[in-house]
Design a binder for these strands. Structure first.
Lengths: 187, 187
DNA sequence: ACGCTAAGCGGCACTCGGTGCCACCGCCAG
DNA sequence: CTGGCGGTGGCACCGAGTGCCGCTTAGCGT
C-alpha cells in the first residue's frame, strides 16, 4: 500500500476515535510509520488528509461537463454531478466519515470551501459557454456558486440520514437541481 | 477611539501595505500600542480583524426577515438583503478593502464562509417557516445556501468593478435574486 | 564488483498563531 | 487604608508548517 494511502487511512481512523484537533501531526506520522517531515511531503496540511479526494472529482466533472450537449447549464450540471458522484457501496462508509468530519470541524469546512472555488468557476465557465455570455458575468457566477451550494446541502442532508444509500444520494441531487432549475418562487 | 477600532484600522492599513500573511500579530499589537496578549483578547484570531463586521449584519438580517410578510422566501430575502446592505458612501472604501482581502487571501475566504453558515441557517429557517416545512429539509437548505452563494457572487462582482457605487450593489442584488426566483433554466 | 549520483527520507531548528497562567496596575467601595 | 476587581501584558508553552542538511538506498555506468 502506498504511503499516502496508508497515512490517509490511519489518519481517518485516529480522527474518528480521538477527534481532529486532538490528533497531532506527530501522532499521524508515527502511526503511519513515517517521519513528521515526511508527512508534510505527502500532505501540505493536516486538513488535506481529509479533503484529499475532493479534487479528483473536479477533473472528472470538467470532462463530463465539456461533453454534455444542450444549452441548459442546469441540465448539463445535473447530468455531470450524477455521473461523477457514482459511489460503490464499499466507498460509502469512508464517504460518511469524511463528510462527518467536514461538517463537525469548522476548520475543515472552511478549507473545503476553498477547494470548491474551482468547481464554482468551472461551472460558471460552462454556463457562460451555453448562455453565450461571460464567465465573469453575475448570472454565470451566481449559477456556479449556487450549484456548489446546493451540492453541499445535498451531501449534508445525505449525511444526516444514517442509512441513506447511493440511490438516495442521486435522488437528493435530482431534487436540488429541480429547485435550481425551476426557481424558488414556484413550488 | 476604542481599542478594538484602533486595532482594526491599523491592521487593515498594514495588511494593505505589506500583505496579510507578511504581517505578524506582534506587529499589529505594537502598531496598535497594545500587548500581543491583549490583541487576542479583542480578536480571537488574526483573521477576525478583517471579518469583524460581517456578524453585525446577521442580527439585522434576522430581524428584518422576521418582520417581512408574504409566503415567498425569495421576496422576503431580497427585501431583507436590500435593507441590510445599505451602505453610506463613506463606508464603501473600507468595504472595498475588506472584500479585496477576503477575495485574495484564501484563508480569509475560508473563514468567511464559516461565518456565513449562520446566515444560511437563518435563511433556511425563514424559508421553512414560509413554506411550512422543516428547516432541515433539503429544499430549505438548498435555498439558504444558494442565497448566500448568490450574495457572495454579488459582492465579488461589485468589488471587481472599481467605480461601482451603492446603487450598483443594489442592482446586482436585484439581478441575483431574479435568477434565484425564476430559476436558471428560463432565461 | 565498485563507485557515483540522485531521490526520498527525516532529524533539527526556527517562525508564527494561539492559549493558560499569573503578576501587576489602577480604580472604586467599604 | 485596604481589599476586591477588571483590564493588561509578560512568560512559557503547544502545535502547525518550513528551510536546511545530512543520511540512506536504489539505480546507473564503467
Amino acid at each position: 500500500m502506498p504511503v499516502a494511502q496508508r497515512l490517509e487511512n490511519v489518519a481517518l481512523e485516529l480522527f474518528a476515535s480521538q477527534g481532529f484537533d486532538e490528533t497531532t501531526v506527530d501522532e499521524l506520522a508515527v502511526a503511519g510509520g513515517v517521519g513528521r517531515r515526511t508527512f508534510f511531503r505527502y500532505f501540505p496540511t493536516k486538513l488535506d488528509v481529509v479533503l484529499g479526494e475532493l479534487d479528483d472529482g473536479l477533473a472528472a466533472l470538467a470532462a463530463v461537463l465539456a461533453d454534455e450537449p444542450g444549452d441548459d447549464p442546469v441540465a448539463a450540471a445535473r447530468a455531470a454531478f450524477l455521473a461523477v458522484n457514482h459511489y460503490a457501496d464499499a466507498e460509502l462508509p469512508a464517504l460518511r466519515r469524511r463528510l462527518g468530519l467536514i461538517e463537525e470541524v469548522p476548520e475543515l469546512a472552511a478549507r473545503a470551501t476553498v477547494r470548491y472555488r474551482d468547481w464554482e468557476q468551472t461551472l460558471a465557465a460552462d454556463a457562460a459557454r451555453r448562455w453565450d455570455t461571460d464567465a465573469a458575468s453575475l448570472i454565470a457566477q451566481v449559477f456556479g456558486r449556487s450549484v456548489v451550494a446546493a451540492m453541499r446541502a445535498v451531501f449534508s442532508a445525505w449525511h444526516a440520514r444514517p442509512e441513506a444509500d447511493a440511490d438516495a444520494l442521486g435522488a437528493l441531487v435530482e431534487e436540488a437541481f429541480d429547485a435550481l432549475s425551476r426557481g424558488f418562487s414556484s413550488r
